[in-house]
Simulated assay, not measured.
Amino acid sequence: MLAALAARICPDDPVSGLDVTEVPDAAAPGNRPDWSVVQVRAAALNHHDLWSLRGVGLSADQLPMVLGTDASGVVVNGPDDGSPGAGSDVVVYPVIGATGHGVGATERRSLLSERYPGTLAEHVAVPSWNLVPKPAELSFAEAACLPTAWLTAYRMLFTTAGLRPGDRVLVQGAGGGVSSAAIALGAAAGLEVVATSRTAAKRDHALAAGAVAALEPGARSPVRVDAVIETVGAATWSHSIRSLRPGGTVVVAGATSGDQPGAELTRMFFTELRVLGATMGSRDDLEALLRFLVRSGLRPTVDSTHRLADARAAVARLASGEHLGKIVVRP
């Protein structure tokens, strides 16, 4: 089958480490009895793919590795255990080992493309427990955008921060996958969303997605917020802390600008702030996110769609930072 691989670790030029080539088919006989094979109809890129090509979380002795964490598709085969059967439309939950399903209770948690081949291929094999029925209301491309960035944003807003309609939230770095999802989800749920971005185009996109204000990085927020969605790190940390109301919460799910921020410890203890971490979300969160999109009519923005054979161009667009929304790859 055709697949996009991390073939080489290239810290300074991650795109050059990507090969699109034939690999053994995941649908071939011999899969584990409690795993299913999915024919991938759409996969979406994430910065995780770039980090893997740079060698972050993926070592040279694990190469070649099929990239990709997000996918939707159609079940080809699997066990008769109550999970979606052959012909079912599904979304793939990409966390392996979180509960022991399909891998045993002692295996540490990982994402697809870290220990097991990922979704940028014609077929992907996953534990059957990881399959979530795809709502008919969502296209394969829309559904493929959800399991990493949108799921993380959903968990940060509603599970970790516990925000409710009418609450105020600041989203740093509006162009990122998690951040742009948080703006759209927050606005659809009745939150008052303030966003930041370095570029005017991405600030305009944030306003179109429902933000009440879109600021340049570091600009004073028009309101003190109940929570901050923080994925940028050192470059925005002080601004995040200073934008919170007393007792507010920063939820951290990344540090693309580095993880050595000025701690602002005096302000943190004096105003009794909370700092919480979030990584991905649970399978239950993914099911809730799917229901939310069906009922609200909200859909992820697809920046562009590429053939699997052109996966290098798709990853290059992700690396450029010029995209607005998710980049989708179709086998």
Rank of each mutant, 00 (worst) to 15 (best):
V329H: 02
V194N: 00
D13Y: 08
V193M: 08
L112E: 08
G258T: 06
A219K: 05
K202E: 08
G78V: 04
L324A: 14
V37H: 10
M1P: 12
G175F: 08
V76E: 13
A235F: 12
R54E: 15
V328W: 02
G210S: 13
V194K: 01
L2Q: 15
S113C: 13
V194E: 02
L324Y: 02
G218Q: 12
P300T: 03
L286P: 02
H306N: 00
A7G: 03
R267D: 02
L45G: 04
M1D: 10
V38T: 12
M1A: 15
P147T: 07
A201I: 07
S139Q: 09
I9M: 01
Q62Y: 04
G85A: 15
R115V: 06
R283Y: 04
T236C: 09
V252W: 03
E22A: 15
V169H: 00
M280H: 11
R32L: 14
T106M: 11
L324P: 00
V193K: 06
V315R: 08
I183P: 09
V92Q: 11
S243C: 12
G55V: 05
D284P: 00
A43D: 02
S113A: 15
A71I: 12
H101A: 15
G186Y: 11
D13W: 06
I229F: 09
I9V: 09
G325F: 02
F292G: 03
S197C: 03
T271G: 00
F269V: 15
A143R: 00
F270A: 13
R220W: 04
V124A: 08
A7S: 10
L289W: 03
S72Q: 04
V15E: 15
R295H: 10
A161N: 02
K326L: 02
A316I: 03
A309M: 03
G85K: 10
